[in-house]
Design a protein around this nucleic acid. Sequence first.
DNA 1: CTCAATTAAATTGTGTACAATATAATGGAA
DNA 2: TTCCATTATATTGTACACAATTTAATTGAG
Lengths: 144, 144
Amino acid sequence: MEKYDVLKLDNQLCFPLYAAGKEIVKKYVPVLDKLGLTYTQYLAMMVLWDGDGISVKELGSKLFLDSGTLTPLLKSMEKKGFVIRRRNEADERVVSIFLTDEGRNLREKALHVPETVGKCAKLTPDEAKQLYALLYKLLNNLSE
Amino acid sequence: MEKYDVLKLDNQLCFPLYAAGKEIVKKYVPVLDKLGLTYTQYLAMMVLWDGDGISVKELGSKLFLDSGTLTPLLKSMEKKGFVIRRRNEADERVVSIFLTDEGRNLREKALHVPETVGKCAKLTPDEAKQLYALLYKLLNNLSE
DNA sequence: CTCAATTAAATTGTGTACAATATAATGGAA
DNA sequence: TTCCATTATATTGTACACAATTTAATTGAG
């Protein structure tokens, strides 16, 4: 064991996290392309399909993203006709995001996406479950 | 269990991977700032500390990055005085990357980085080991 | 009620990422 | 030897991601 071994790429936990994250997002690209979505937009749609009319802030807290990322993202989704951004009447500071009919219809077309990409991971259900649990534990620890 | 449950954010494996990756990189930023490095530049330095004089291509295959990312990254690192980019004499297509003395000295100053950031993860050694193994398994499956 | 502090979005600037394309050097087949 | 396919890097264009700042609306202490 050498002094500088702690600085070897192979000894980092963060690197495979960073690399695997990027690589799996790449698997989504061709699949989501057919729906007219980028990966980040797909994440936003998943939140909105689960319940729209939420604010940029609420969306951001679920996705770990801020307005600097979301504002242009949502504008682009609005231009594509998937969502509508509307200033809240009760509190003009807040922008609420609503799905259009087209955005709502996209849900059906996206149903196959998780399995299509999930197959690429080639993990056993048990491994996937373990990984999921560890990642959420880490994520919670990091945002404390 | 509802039809659309597969599209819930909470049922995705990819999302905590994406989110945890981003969150842990954020922990590096203030630490690496003192060394004058970004996170991606730090990854590149780890590879180079382990052995410099390698090509852009070799560096990219270790980091899962292409020349579109690495060329500007390495130019910026060269401007800061950490590396030198030199066309290979035997094969003019190849650019080899060498550490400067300043770049080499940075290694000592970076020794504390992994532990400083590692503490934020707050995982037991066993959990970290499990996560590491699963992430590399996933990474290998994805790049097959 | 009033104004300073707070809050929500938007904007600005920097730095990745990567697909697609361009450029230039190399190597191999005929 | 010639030239076509391949290879390595660079460039271009698009899309995040986030820190820092700005703008505008709201709230709460006095």
